[in-house]
Amino acid sequence: QEPLTASMVAAALPHEQKQMIGERLYPLVYEIHSQLANKITGMLLEIDSSELLLMLESPESLHAKVEEALAVLQAHQAME
């Protein structure tokens, strides 16, 4: 699979951008947290596309955001 570039994403429509990024992001999130990968990926997709692209290229940033999203998700579930 070719790396997703900023220009590829910029050429896509807004709703396509998130889908393109999501397809790349999901396998990475799955490796970190397989059980909640669907929810965490959905949360991360609410982040700006430009920041998501940086996360795709930076495992450390991605890992940090996944942990952050996980904490928010758990807090949200605790309130339910």
């Binding site: 429509l13 807004p14 709703h15 998130k18 889908q19 999501g22 397809e23 992001l25 999901y26 396998p27 669907n38 929810k39 990926t41 959905g42 949360m43 997709l45 609410e46 998700l73 949200h76 579930q77 339910e80």
Partner: peptide
């Protein structure tokens, strides 16, 4: 009420249009 489920966040499933996209492009 019964049968309530967590609707947030919109889950992403590979190959399936992401539900959260409804908020971006209605």
């Amino acid at each position: 009420s019964n049968g309530s489920s967590i609707s947030w966040p919109p889950e992403f499933h590979p190959g399936v249009p992401w539900k959260g996209l409804q908020n971006i492009d209605p």
